[in-house]
Protein backbone atom coordinates (compact mmCIF):
# COMPACT_ATOMS: atom_id res chain seq x y z
CA UNK A 1 0.00 0.00 0.00
CA UNK A 2 1.49 3.34 -1.00
CA UNK A 3 0.37 6.84 -0.19
CA UNK A 4 -0.99 7.45 -3.71
CA UNK A 5 -3.25 4.43 -3.53
CA UNK A 6 -4.40 5.24 0.00
CA UNK A 7 -5.13 8.84 -1.05
CA UNK A 8 -6.98 7.46 -4.09
CA UNK A 9 -9.11 5.14 -1.99
CA UNK A 10 -9.89 7.94 0.47
CA UNK A 11 -10.93 10.41 -2.23
CA UNK A 12 -13.04 7.66 -3.76
CA UNK A 13 -14.68 7.07 -0.38
CA UNK A 14 -15.20 10.84 0.06
CA UNK A 15 -16.87 11.10 -3.35
CA UNK A 16 -19.37 8.40 -2.38
CA UNK A 17 -19.99 9.95 1.06
CA UNK A 18 -20.52 13.40 -0.55
CA UNK A 19 -23.13 11.86 -2.81
CA UNK A 20 -24.86 10.02 0.05
CA UNK A 21 -24.77 13.25 2.10
CA UNK A 22 -26.32 15.25 -0.74
CA UNK A 23 -29.13 12.75 -1.26
CA UNK A 24 -29.76 12.23 2.46
CA UNK A 25 -29.51 15.89 3.50
CA UNK A 26 -31.49 17.39 0.65
CA UNK A 27 -33.74 14.34 0.13
CA UNK A 28 -33.18 15.07 -3.53
CA UNK A 29 -31.16 13.49 -6.32
CA UNK A 30 -31.64 16.26 -8.86
CA UNK A 31 -28.55 16.62 -11.01
CA UNK A 32 -27.45 13.05 -10.27
CA UNK A 33 -27.43 10.50 -13.08
CA UNK A 34 -29.05 7.24 -11.95
CA UNK A 35 -27.42 5.53 -14.94
CA UNK A 36 -23.93 6.42 -13.72
CA UNK A 37 -24.83 5.08 -10.28
CA UNK A 38 -26.13 1.84 -11.79
CA UNK A 39 -22.93 1.48 -13.81
CA UNK A 40 -20.86 1.92 -10.65
CA UNK A 41 -22.91 -0.71 -8.84
CA UNK A 42 -22.18 -3.12 -11.73
CA UNK A 43 -18.48 -2.16 -11.63
CA UNK A 44 -18.16 -2.98 -7.92
CA UNK A 45 -20.16 -6.22 -8.05
CA UNK A 46 -18.21 -7.44 -11.11
CA UNK A 47 -14.85 -6.47 -9.63
CA UNK A 48 -15.23 -7.64 -6.05
CA UNK A 49 -16.29 -11.22 -6.82
CA UNK A 50 -13.11 -12.33 -5.05
CA UNK A 51 -14.49 -10.80 -1.85
CA UNK A 52 -15.21 -14.24 -0.38
CA UNK A 53 -12.49 -16.25 -2.08
CA UNK A 54 -9.29 -14.20 -1.75
CA UNK A 55 -8.64 -12.53 1.58
CA UNK A 56 -6.05 -9.79 1.01
CA UNK A 57 -6.41 -7.57 4.10
CA UNK A 58 -9.06 -6.31 6.48
CA UNK A 59 -8.77 -2.88 4.86
CA UNK A 60 -9.33 -4.39 1.41
CA UNK A 61 -12.35 -6.41 2.48
CA UNK A 62 -13.94 -3.59 4.49
CA UNK A 63 -13.50 -1.06 1.66
CA UNK A 64 -15.01 -3.51 -0.87
CA UNK A 65 -18.05 -4.02 1.35
CA UNK A 66 -18.40 -0.25 1.82
CA UNK A 67 -18.15 0.47 -1.92
CA UNK A 68 -20.64 -2.25 -2.87
CA UNK A 69 -22.99 -1.28 -0.02
CA UNK A 70 -22.95 2.46 -0.75
CA UNK A 71 -23.35 2.12 -4.51
CA UNK A 72 -26.31 -0.24 -4.08
CA UNK A 73 -27.78 2.06 -1.41
CA UNK A 74 -27.56 5.05 -3.78
CA UNK A 75 -29.26 3.14 -6.60
CA UNK A 76 -31.92 1.87 -4.17
CA UNK A 77 -32.47 5.43 -2.89
CA UNK A 78 -32.85 6.93 -6.36
CA UNK A 79 -35.14 4.18 -7.58
CA UNK A 80 -37.29 3.31 -4.58
CA UNK A 81 -37.08 5.89 -1.78
CA UNK A 82 -40.56 7.42 -1.80
CA UNK A 83 -39.31 11.04 -1.49
CA UNK A 84 -36.01 10.95 -3.36
CA UNK A 85 -37.27 9.03 -6.39
CA UNK A 86 -39.71 11.81 -7.22
CA UNK A 87 -36.79 14.23 -7.62
CA UNK A 88 -35.11 12.04 -10.24
CA UNK A 89 -35.56 13.65 -13.64
CA UNK A 90 -35.30 10.80 -16.13
CA UNK A 91 -35.94 13.15 -19.06
CA UNK A 92 -32.40 14.57 -18.77
CA UNK A 93 -30.70 11.29 -17.83
CA UNK A 94 -31.04 9.78 -21.28
CA UNK A 95 -27.60 8.34 -21.97
CA UNK A 96 -28.01 4.81 -23.42
CA UNK A 97 -25.69 3.26 -20.84
CA UNK A 98 -26.54 -0.34 -21.78
CA UNK A 99 -24.39 0.14 -24.86
CA UNK A 100 -21.51 0.97 -22.53
CA UNK A 101 -22.10 -2.26 -20.60
CA UNK A 102 -22.25 -4.33 -23.79
CA UNK A 103 -19.20 -2.65 -25.34
CA UNK A 104 -17.08 -3.08 -22.24
CA UNK A 105 -18.12 -6.73 -21.88
CA UNK A 106 -17.22 -7.48 -25.50
CA UNK A 107 -13.87 -5.71 -25.07
CA UNK A 108 -13.22 -7.72 -21.90
CA UNK A 109 -13.88 -10.93 -23.83
CA UNK A 110 -11.00 -10.03 -26.14
CA UNK A 111 -8.64 -8.06 -23.89
CA UNK A 112 -8.03 -9.52 -20.43
CA UNK A 113 -5.16 -10.86 -18.37
CA UNK A 114 -6.41 -14.47 -18.29
CA UNK A 115 -9.44 -16.05 -19.91
CA UNK A 116 -11.15 -17.02 -16.66
CA UNK A 117 -14.59 -16.00 -15.37
CA UNK A 118 -13.11 -13.79 -12.65
CA UNK A 119 -10.46 -12.15 -14.84
CA UNK A 120 -12.84 -11.37 -17.69
CA UNK A 121 -15.29 -9.77 -15.24
CA UNK A 122 -12.41 -7.91 -13.60
CA UNK A 123 -11.33 -6.46 -16.98
CA UNK A 124 -15.00 -5.69 -17.75
CA UNK A 125 -15.31 -3.77 -14.47
CA UNK A 126 -12.12 -1.80 -15.23
CA UNK A 127 -13.36 -0.78 -18.69
CA UNK A 128 -16.84 0.00 -17.42
CA UNK A 129 -15.50 2.18 -14.63
CA UNK A 130 -13.54 4.21 -17.17
CA UNK A 131 -16.74 5.21 -18.99
CA UNK A 132 -19.25 5.04 -16.12
CA UNK A 133 -19.08 8.80 -15.56
CA UNK A 134 -20.30 9.61 -19.09
CA UNK A 135 -24.03 9.70 -18.29
CA UNK A 136 -23.28 12.00 -15.35
CA UNK A 137 -21.11 14.35 -17.45
CA UNK A 138 -23.74 14.44 -20.19
CA UNK A 139 -26.37 15.27 -17.56
CA UNK A 140 -24.18 18.05 -16.13
CA UNK A 141 -23.66 19.39 -19.65
CA UNK A 142 -27.43 19.41 -20.23
CA UNK A 143 -28.43 20.94 -16.94
CA UNK A 144 -25.82 23.74 -17.20
CA UNK A 145 -25.55 25.13 -13.69
CA UNK A 146 -25.38 22.39 -11.10
CA UNK A 147 -25.27 22.40 -7.33
CA UNK A 148 -21.92 22.32 -5.58
CA UNK A 149 -22.24 18.89 -3.99
CA UNK A 150 -22.72 17.26 -7.39
CA UNK A 151 -19.70 19.12 -8.76
CA UNK A 152 -17.61 18.06 -5.76
CA UNK A 153 -18.79 14.48 -6.23
CA UNK A 154 -17.46 14.42 -9.81
CA UNK A 155 -14.30 16.27 -8.76
CA UNK A 156 -13.38 13.73 -6.05
CA UNK A 157 -14.25 10.88 -8.40
CA UNK A 158 -11.79 12.26 -10.96
CA UNK A 159 -9.13 12.91 -8.32
CA UNK A 160 -9.32 9.29 -7.09
CA UNK A 161 -8.39 7.85 -10.46
CA UNK A 162 -5.67 10.46 -10.94
CA UNK A 163 -4.12 9.31 -7.64
CA UNK A 164 -4.35 5.71 -8.87
CA UNK A 165 -2.32 6.60 -11.95
CA UNK A 166 0.42 7.94 -9.66
CA UNK A 167 0.09 4.69 -7.70
CA UNK A 168 0.62 2.59 -10.87
CA UNK A 169 3.66 4.65 -11.85
CA UNK A 170 5.07 4.24 -8.33
CA UNK A 171 4.41 0.47 -8.31
CA UNK A 172 5.84 0.09 -11.80
CA UNK A 173 9.03 1.77 -10.62
CA UNK A 174 9.30 -0.13 -7.34
CA UNK A 175 7.87 -3.62 -8.03
CA UNK A 176 9.69 -5.84 -10.58
CA UNK A 177 6.69 -7.88 -11.67
CA UNK A 178 4.16 -5.11 -11.67
CA UNK A 179 2.42 -5.01 -15.04
CA UNK A 180 -1.09 -3.64 -14.62
CA UNK A 181 -1.55 -2.42 -18.20
CA UNK A 182 -5.27 -2.96 -18.48
CA UNK A 183 -6.04 -0.88 -15.38
CA UNK A 184 -3.40 1.76 -16.20
CA UNK A 185 -4.59 2.38 -19.77
CA UNK A 186 -8.26 2.37 -18.73
CA UNK A 187 -7.38 4.64 -15.79
CA UNK A 188 -5.72 7.12 -18.17
CA UNK A 189 -8.80 7.12 -20.41
CA UNK A 190 -11.00 7.62 -17.35
CA UNK A 191 -8.97 10.57 -16.05
CA UNK A 192 -8.85 12.09 -19.54
CA UNK A 193 -12.66 12.03 -19.64
CA UNK A 194 -12.66 14.17 -16.51
CA UNK A 195 -9.97 16.50 -17.83
CA UNK A 196 -12.33 18.93 -19.57
CA UNK A 197 -14.64 18.85 -16.56
CA UNK A 198 -11.66 19.59 -14.31
CA UNK A 199 -10.72 22.50 -16.59
CA UNK A 200 -14.13 24.14 -16.28
CA UNK A 201 -14.25 23.35 -12.55
CA UNK A 202 -10.89 25.04 -12.03
CA UNK A 203 -11.93 28.09 -14.12
CA UNK A 204 -15.17 28.49 -12.16
CA UNK A 205 -13.29 28.01 -8.88
CA UNK A 206 -10.67 30.61 -9.91
CA UNK A 207 -13.32 33.14 -10.95
CA UNK A 208 -15.29 32.16 -7.89
CA UNK A 209 -18.26 31.71 -10.18
CA UNK A 210 -20.72 28.89 -10.46
CA UNK A 211 -19.69 26.09 -12.80
CA UNK A 212 -20.65 26.97 -16.38
CA UNK A 213 -20.33 24.00 -18.73
CA UNK A 214 -20.51 24.81 -22.45
CA UNK A 215 -23.87 23.62 -23.76
Amino acid sequence: MNIFRFAGDMTHLISILVLLLKIYATKSCSGISLKTQELYAIVFVARYLDLFTDFISVYNTVMKLVFIGCSLAIVWCMRLHRVVRRTYNKDVDTFRHYFLVLGCFLLALFVHEKFTFQEVLWAFSIYLEAVAILPQLVLLQRSGNVDNLTVQYVFFLGAYRAFYILNWIYRYLTEPHFGRWIASVAGLVQTALYADFFYYYFISWKNNAKLQLPA
Partner: peptide, 10 residues
Protein backbone atom coordinates in the same frame (compact mmCIF):
# COMPACT_ATOMS: atom_id res chain seq x y z
CA UNK B 1 8.81 -15.95 -9.86
CA UNK B 2 5.22 -16.59 -10.80
CA UNK B 3 3.45 -13.31 -10.26
CA UNK B 4 0.80 -13.77 -7.58
CA UNK B 5 -2.46 -13.58 -9.50
CA UNK B 6 -4.69 -11.54 -7.29
CA UNK B 7 -5.94 -8.00 -7.57
CA UNK B 8 -4.82 -6.30 -4.39
CA UNK B 9 -6.20 -2.93 -5.47
CA UNK B 10 -9.73 -1.72 -5.04
Amino acid sequence: SQEVKYHDEL
